[in-house]
Design a protein around this nucleic acid. Structure first.
Lengths: 108, 108
DNA sequence: CCTAAATTTGCCAATATTTGACAAGTCAAT
DNA sequence: ATTGACTTGTCAAATATTGGCAAATTTAGG
């Protein structure tokens, strides 16, 4: 599994001089489980991501981006059409967002 | 769920003048299930995609790309960092592919 | 070296999600 | 009203994900 998320939280945790044990307990998680999350052996639930952002005093959206990117990577990594599919999906996300914004401005 | 895959197979099925019942039976699937796959209410398993490409006489990679793109879209669609995450994941896929090719050329 | 703390590994049971099927429904054409 | 094509709703079985524990390994200090 891609693990930009895990690498980032490990970096932040060490910068903050925190032990896995300490962060895990703030999250109400097992230390072993947190260890696995850092190493990308397990994926954190979305709720954990935002709580982590607070604990590690970092930007939640950035962290969420890495977390989601890892999951996307993981879904696509074994396919040789992975990159193309990523482009196609990116386009359809853009379209979706446009529609969302149109709706938003229509009900201002 | 995004449904570029379903739309494409429906289009191809109709161009080939095939009924859902006929395609479903070639795939050993329930007609209702195939109907759901066409409408994106259910996702097809990967194995189904390649068998479908043969049945519908179309390019397997193209079909696989749409199928994967739908899944990527679906995973990201509710996140407001979806597009950014898609970019990040795209980059890490590219890097992964580079490494793959390096390995490949090293063992030529 | 010794050992104590930190982290990792392996595994399990509980839970949640996905799968494919069936029965019954709608809809259109005749 | 009957037939054929497709859709909807629901279910049980299979599969995957979850969090935790016990034990192993690695790291750091004396």
């Amino acid at each position: 599994m891609a693990n930009q998320f895990g690498e980032q939280i490990k970096k932040l945790r060490e910068q903050g001089n925190l032990l896995q044990r300490q962060v895990a307990s703030q999250l109400d998680l097992d230390t072993p489980l947190f260890s696995k999350i850092e190493r990308g052996e397990r994926t954190a639930k979305k709720e954990i991501v935002s709580r982590l952002a607070k604990i590690l005093k970092t930007n939640e959206k950035e962290l969420l981006t890495l977390w989601l990117a890892d999951q996307l990577h993981n879904l696509a990594k074994d396919e040789d059409v992975a990159f193309k599919a990523m482009e196609v999906a990116g386009k359809s996300i853009k379209t979706q967002n446009q529609k969302r914004n149109e709706t938003k401005s229509n009900r201002q």
